[in-house]
Design a protein around this nucleic acid. Structure first.
Length: 771
DNA sequence: GATTTTACGTA
DNA sequence: CGTACGTAAAATCT
């Protein structure tokens, strides 16, 4: 059926979708199926009344199989069929007739029909014009159907629609009158720097670099202008050496003396310091950090934040064709969003959290630039040994299998297991029952098959050995035998924790330092006379959960054990033993090793509401055995389900959770168990991360002259300490790390214990009592 | 050549 | 249907 455009001819807003679906086809109206429902929700959240809008699709008849490719001659959907051209001409005529103030293309097809361009992700949220109807204002956004698949896009679409609503009150397209000064002469550049120094406003700075060598830098100290200077073209300097030196002196003056704004300071600040010796003494704001605090659940790129907060054209496509303009706009837009974000942070009571995360940038940058020393001999030995090990497994496998198989290839392993060896097929868990089953060769599946055949065990062994070599042992090191990973203070969606990844400044090493297995840690050694000191929070997340549940018995166990040595604690104050004791209703001292292991697994699993299947896997028991065990556990720990229910109630308010330090997170996923479990994990995980990083910064301030902070591992700080000072440093670290954290009416303190070693793989517990 | 999927390491 | 991350190799898309 042909679907007509609906809505009042006087409408100020016109919404354009892609093509009708099944329901639309049946009812003869656009956006009345599932996508229509989503659209209604989005419109109402944006304050737009649907009946006052014109609603259209580009294609007017439902394509077979709902596949838009039907209307194109090519796979990339760039060459339209004659029918599609007719539809586009019709759309053009309608827009020219109704003259809405703003047209909202929803999705790639509508955006392409109106502009001839693709890439809705980069275009959405910008204010732009149509080429189909010249002069027609557009505010593009995602298609409601995309929101249906990924509900976290909803927030973005609502913000775009609000922007469209604002733009529907007038037809003019705002002119970008901001002034960009691109590649001035040396003399002009110096004048401009002088102007920045005179005006004393916070300056947004952005560098462009290839392999951390700066080739361009841009500045902006007001929302109306910016300037940029290229210093390198490829590897060729653009100025004579003496001029360049002078230019860098002025750059240094600006950056070292004025309050500075970056988008991703850990990068710009580190490169400027490493390559040009320029310190950022007054870091006023990192707009990436601001975005991470304001909307940890949303994208944080400058492009995205700008599309949300400003009414400016997209500019990222200029990076190749007009690098000067691109860089100047980066600086300018950073400058423009900064004050808006500052206001929002204060309004939402997040200023303190923001300042705290800002304070982590310096130590995180230090850790990246400092790096870790690698013992090359040890590394070579370990690689050799691991390769030998791999060869042995390969030989065994070849004997059993009788042919060469690439065990890193899931396809080949599937063939081997399920066709050649005729083992019972193991399937991946499906998201919905309607999805078709997919075979898996993951470790859990192989473990089950291991009961029937000896090959699966060897495959597990083979893959572990191969992973160890490729990811953790066979790593690149700097000329100084160091690895330099970057710590990302904005790297986790929850916030509070840092992530760790390959540095783009000094790209040596395994990248992520937070997932290195014990076997690969031994190659990280310390200089003669020094020790590696690990200070970690004891049972941190479990303690946090106990306080959040108000489990007074458990809290007492932790407070009684506070300050005890490890061996004392193990005797009568061990959480897992306690868990087993209450589960089996026996005295603490009668708990067997096996029962303790069960207690430990149960606690880990059920704090965050895992199901019987997973527990069965972990304890290597059947589902039938796991179910009553879980039931028993929740009977004895009745506060846990109450806590979970409380979280669900909090989510119902506005889907927002707040951690123990005031950090906020909005959970945007589809309402359901998976969202709940994520929310259960939020407070303990992000609060402990935050606690550790607060302590890390304080350690950096107070002990930075005597020790080198070496590693951060979510709930542990590692430092290099002269062996003669180990005891003193332990005392100091305890003073810093043990903090009183309010949880409701209680005050939580988490104990710290220490390990010492001369390499990261062999750390020895320090059995010291502190009472 | 770029992007997605699969598998697997840590807290 | 623990959660949170990042990387390597293979598979897939263009």
């Amino acid at each position: 059926m042909f679907i007509k455009t609906v809505g009042p001819v006087t409408a100020k807003i016109m919404l354009v979708g892609e093509a009708p679906g099944e329901t639309e086809d049946r009812k003869g109206l656009p956006f009345v199926g599932r996508a229509g429902n989503t659209l209604n929700t989005l419109l109402s959240q944006a304050g737009i009344i649907r009946s006052k809008c014109l609603i259209a699709n580009v294609a007017r008849e439902r394509p077979p199989g709902n596949d838009i490719k039907h209307y194109f001659q090519d796979k990339g959907c760039k060459v339209p069929t004659p029918r599609m051209l007719e539809y586009i001409a019709l759309l053009q005529k309608e827009i020219e007739t109704y003259k809405p103030n703003v047209v909202v293309p929803l999705g790639n097809t509508a955006f392409w029909a109106l502009t001839g361009r693709k890439g809705i992700k980069h275009a959405r949220g910008s204010v732009t014009t149509s080429t189909l109807v010249p002069g027609q204002k557009l505010v593009p956004s995602y298609h409601p159907q995309a929101v249906g698949y990924d509900w976290s896009l909803a927030t973005t679409v609502v913000m775009d629609l609000k922007k469209a609503l604002y733009h529907s009150s007038f037809s003019d397209i705002p002119e970008d009158k901001r002034q960009l000064i691109i590649d001035p002469t040396k003399a002009n550049f110096i004048e401009l720097c002088q102007r920045l120094l005179d005006e004393k406003e916070p300056v947004a700075v952005d560098i462009e670099a290839v392999q951390a060598h700066i080739n361009r830098i841009g500045f902006s100290n007001s929302p109306v202008w910016a300037f940029t200077l290229g210093t390198l073209k490829g590897k060729v300097p653009l100025f004579p050496e003496r001029d360049e030196l002078e230019i860098w002196e002025w750059i240094c003056r600006v950056i070292a003396e004025l309050p500075i704004i970056y988008h991703n300071a850990t990068y710009d600040l580190s490169v400027l310091f490493l390559r040009n010796g320029i310190p950022t003494r007054n870091l006023y704001m990192d707009t990436l950090v601001a975005a991470h605090i304001l909307w940890p659940e949303l994208p944080k790129s400058l492009e995205y934040v700008t599309s949300i907060l400003l009414d400016v054209p997209a500019w990222k496509h200029l990076s190749e064709t007009a690098p000067g303009e691109y860089n100047a706009l980066d600086a300018l837009n950073t400058k423009c969003i900064a004050p808006i974000m500052e206001k929002l942070l204060k309004k939402r009571d997040l200023w303190e959290t923001f300042q705290r995360e800002m304070s982590w940038i310096e130590p995180a940058s230090m850790l990246q630039l400092q790096g870790l020393y690698v013992d090359m001999e040890k590394k070579d030995d370990l690689v050799k040994e691991a390769k030998k090990n791999l060869k042995e497994v390969d030989a065994e496998l070849l004997k059993l299998v009788g042919k060469e198989v690439n065990y890193n290839s899931p396809a080949q392993v599937k063939n081997l297991l399920y066709i050649d060896l005729e083992l019972p097929p193991q399937y991946k868990r499906r998201k919905s029952i309607r999805e078709k089953q997919k075979l898996t060769t993951g470790e859990d599946a192989l473990k089950k098959l291991a009961r029937m055949h000896e090959v699966p065990t060897l495959i597990i062994k083979r893959r572990k050995a191969s992973k160890l070599i490729s990811t953790f042992l066979d790593i690149s090191v700097s000329p100084e035998n160091r690895v330099h990973s970057s710590y990302n203070v904005t790297g986790t969606g929850f916030g509070g924790r840092w992530s760790s990844s390959k540095s783009i400044i000094l790209s040596y090493g395994p990248g992520n330092l937070q997932n290195i297995p014990k076997e690969a840690r031994t190659l990280y050694t310390v200089p003669e006379g020094y020790v590696l000191l690990e200070a970690d929070y004891i049972q941190a997340e479990a303690v946090a959960v106990a306080y959040l549940c108000l489990d007074t018995v458990l809290i007492k166990l932790f407070t009684d054990a506070f300050g005890m040595s490890g061996s004392e604690r193990a005797k009568g104050y061990d959480v897992h033993r306690y868990t087993a004791a209450i589960m089996y209703d026996i005295p603490l001292e009668e708990v067997t090793k096996e029962q303790r292991t069960i207690g430990k697994t149960m606690r880990h699993a059920s704090n965050y509401a895992s199901g019987p299947g997973v527990l069965a896997n972990k304890l290597n028991i059947s589902m039938a055995q796991a179910k009553p065990l879980l039931k028993l556990y929740f009977q004895k720990n009745h506060l846990l389900p109450i806590w979970h229910k409380r979280i669900q109630m909090q989510l119902r308010q506005d889907r927002t959770m707040v951690n123990l330090f005031g950090r906020k997170h909005k959970f945007l996923d589809r309402w359901g168990d998976s969202l709940f479990r994520s929310a259960y994990a939020y407070n303990p995980q992000s609060s402990i991360g935050e606690l550790l990083n607060i302590s890390l910064r304080e350690t950096y301030d107070k002990l930075g002259d005597n020790i080198r902070i070496y590693l951060q591992l979510h709930d542990a700080i590692y430092s290099l300490v002269h062996h003669s000072e180990t005891m003193d440093v332990m005392k100091e670290l305890r003073k810093i790390m043990i903090k009183e954290v309010p949880v409701g009416r209680e005050t939580m303190k988490i104990d710290v214990d220490f390990k010492v070693g001369d390499n990261w793989g062999e750390m020895v517990e320090q059995d010291i009592g502190w009472k």
